[in-house]
Design a protein around this nucleic acid. Structure first.
Length: 552
RNA sequence: GCGCCAGUAGCUCAGCUGGAUAGAGCAACGGACUUCUAAUCCGUAGGUCGCAGGUUCGAAUCCUGCCUGGCGUACCA
């Protein structure tokens, strides 16, 4: 907010200089206002003079001098201006400007930090999308949290968000699931039946078969069709998946079934349309999509010689449906193992006449679990994988959410079970939450000592003069911009880092300065700031789906 | 072989749309509870930003080549 105010002032000074003939308009929009890395370099810094010097072939320090003088005249906003290094102009903001943030934050409350940059654009976030073949794995967990956090951030920035889970209950995987269930069913009934080689070996299949026996006895013993087994398995597993998602605070607006694409004729339709446009041909008894027309190295099969479509075709048809449902922006969260499908789907979208630039794919890398410093081995097919449910049982929802959001999607994520389990000290989740609990404790204490609900007073606010206080105010001021960049870049980890920074500053401040003292005006001023901090921390935690405890 | 991602402190990772002296957490070491909650704080130590070139006023950041790890490269999803 304050940064953009300064940018506007700087732009005005630039225009003024153009009018006065000091420089040409060539550098318009090229200079920036940044936060310097080191203290003593001002609250903000601009490379204005360096950029202009490059274009105008003039001495950067001379230009810096000129612009500094112009800026210094804006006394309402700027306290002083310095020229440093090769020609950086460092700007020191009037302290009152920071302090006035406090009443604004308190007044806005839960709305502080939210914005309308999204312009109510309709955006679909597709995530999880795991087929109901087993409980959600750790990898799905990361995706679930990542997608949910992104959805929340987009909502906070004024997007009209729709959360969708896409699944398939028709393909080969589900058939194998049905066969696995039948095998367990027959084994439970004492039949000597060999388990399918590529079957799902998890314990949960046996439970499902047992439930089938309870409901229907041995009536399915001679049933050759796997459908009832598949349906039972699907029902149970989906229930399991939804309850896992629910306990993590994740709710979908819609579950989209791939089968409907067939039933509604969309699959045939897409093939016909691609064929009409010349992007489809037959070879070796299969149907091929001419992806080479879009710069790919080789064409891809979309219908196998068996007549069964490959995963690409429904994926393309599904994305076409997303476009037809009038979304302005499609965000797909996929595991990095799906990377191969992305170019194909985008080519399909383009071939069908839609704009692939409206699709943003967030690919996240894998998760490894470590315990006692050693990697925990996982494998989906075998029985020894760790499920999201087990993880939540062990460490709790907040740490699971926090840890999955802590890394950018591009990075592999190491989930340290020992660290996440720790109720104390080095666990970053509690570090942030404890900050909030502390603020609540101070406010409780203040109420007990007879302080009224903090009310901002300009005269008193001048007492907020400690460097730690100004630093906190400055950090609070960047909250809205942090949400915005975190949302638009689809990068929840930025919010996590922000919260850790804010909590850190708060803890330092707490240990160095006492809020409630005999100095009533000072106490009142500080309590206002504490209230504002509480708002920011709470909003930040809420936005990421983390709880904000009043006491710990 | 080709494509994508990663390589930054002992470990896990930020920073990467070029900016000034490269950061955090954990681990290590030394301190702070008669105090609004010590789930906290303060201090010390820790680095050839994978390697080599290039681009320019300026490179962890951009370009090229190479090395290492992960994922993909199906008529699996």
């Amino acid at each position: 907010m304050i940064r953009s105010q300064l940018k506007k002032v700087l732009d005005d000074c630039f225009d003024q200089g153009v009018t006065e003939g000091l420089w040409t308009g060539g550098a318009a929009g090229k200079f920036t206002v940044e936060l310097p890395k080191h203290e003593g370099q001002g609250d903000f810094s601009t490379n204005f003079a360096l950029v202009l010097a490059g274009i105008e072939k003039k001495n950067p320090r001379a230009i810096a001098q000129t612009i500094a003088e112009k800026l210094a005249m804006q006394t309402a906003l700027i306290a002083r201006v310095e020229i440093a290094g090769p020609g950086f102009v460092n700007v020191f903001i009037n302290h009152d400007v920071w302090r006035r943030l406090i009443p604004e934050i308190i007044a806005e409350g839960a709305a502080y930090g939210k914005s309308s940059v999204g312009g109510q654009r309709k955006v679909m976030v597709e995530f999880v999308s795991a087929n109901p073949t087993g409980p959600l794995s750790i990898g799905h967990g990361r995706q679930a949290i990542l997608g949910d956090a992104i959805a929340r951030l987009l909502e906070a920035t004024g997007h009209d968000v729709f959360r969708e889970y896409y699944y398939n209950d028709a393909g080969r995987q589900m058939r194998v699931l049905g066969e696995s269930t039948r095998a367990r069913y027959l084994q439970l009934l004492g039949e000597d039946f060999t388990f399918p080689e590529d079957g799902y070996q998890g314990e949960y299949i046996i439970d499902i078969s047992r439930s089938l026996i309870e409901e229907r006895g041995d009536s399915l013993k001679d049933h050759q069709d796997v459908t009832p087994f598949k349906e039972q398995a699907e029902k149970h597993i989906f229930k399991d998946i939804s309850s896992t998602l629910e306990r993590m605070g994740i709710v979908f607006d819609n579950y989209y079934n791939e089968r409907s694409l067939y039933e509604n004729g969309h699959i045939d339709d897409v093939v016909a349309e691609l064929r009409a446009k010349g992007y489809v041909y037959e070879k070796d008894n299969a149907v091929w999509f001419r992806t080479t027309a879009f710069g790919h190295e080789q064409d891809r099969v979309i219908i196998k010689s068996s007549g069964e479509p490959t995963y690409r075709l429904p994926d393309i048809a599904y994305h076409r449906e997303k476009f037809r449902r009038n979304f302005d922006w499609l965000v797909d969260i996929f595991g990095s193992d799906h990377i191969a499908t992305v170019p194909d789907v985008l080519a399909g979208v383009k071939a069908l006449g839609y704009d692939p630039d409206k699709v943003t794919v967030v690919l996240h890398q894998f998760v490894t679990l470590t315990r006692d410093g050693k990697q925990v081995k996982m494998s989906t097919r075998k029985a020894n994988f760790v499920t999201v449910d087990e993880l939540v049982d062990e460490v709790g929802v907040d740490p699971v959410r926090f840890f999955f959001m802590m890394r950018k999607a591009d990075s592999q994520l190491e989930f340290d079970l020992d660290l996440a389990t720790k109720q104390s000290q080095e666990n970053p989740v509690y570090y942030v939450q404890y900050g909030h609990a502390r603020l609540c404790a101070i406010l409780r204490q203040a109420a007990e000592k007879g302080f009224a609900e903090p009310e901002f007073d300009v005269a008193e606010s001048v007492l907020l003069n400690e460097p730690e206080e100004l630093k906190l105010l400055k950090t609070m001021s960047t909250f809205p911009a942090t949400i915005e960049s975190s949302a638009l870049e689809l990068a929840p980890h930025k919010m996590i880092f922000y919260l850790m920074e804010l909590a850190g500053q708060l803890h330092s401040y707490y240990n160095k300065h006492k809020v409630i003292t005999d100095d009533i005006p000072l106490s009142r001023a500080r309590l206002c700031m504490i209230r504002a901090l509480q708002v920011v921390l709470k909003n930040g935690l809420d936005m990421l789906g983390l709880s904000a405890p009043d006491r710990m």
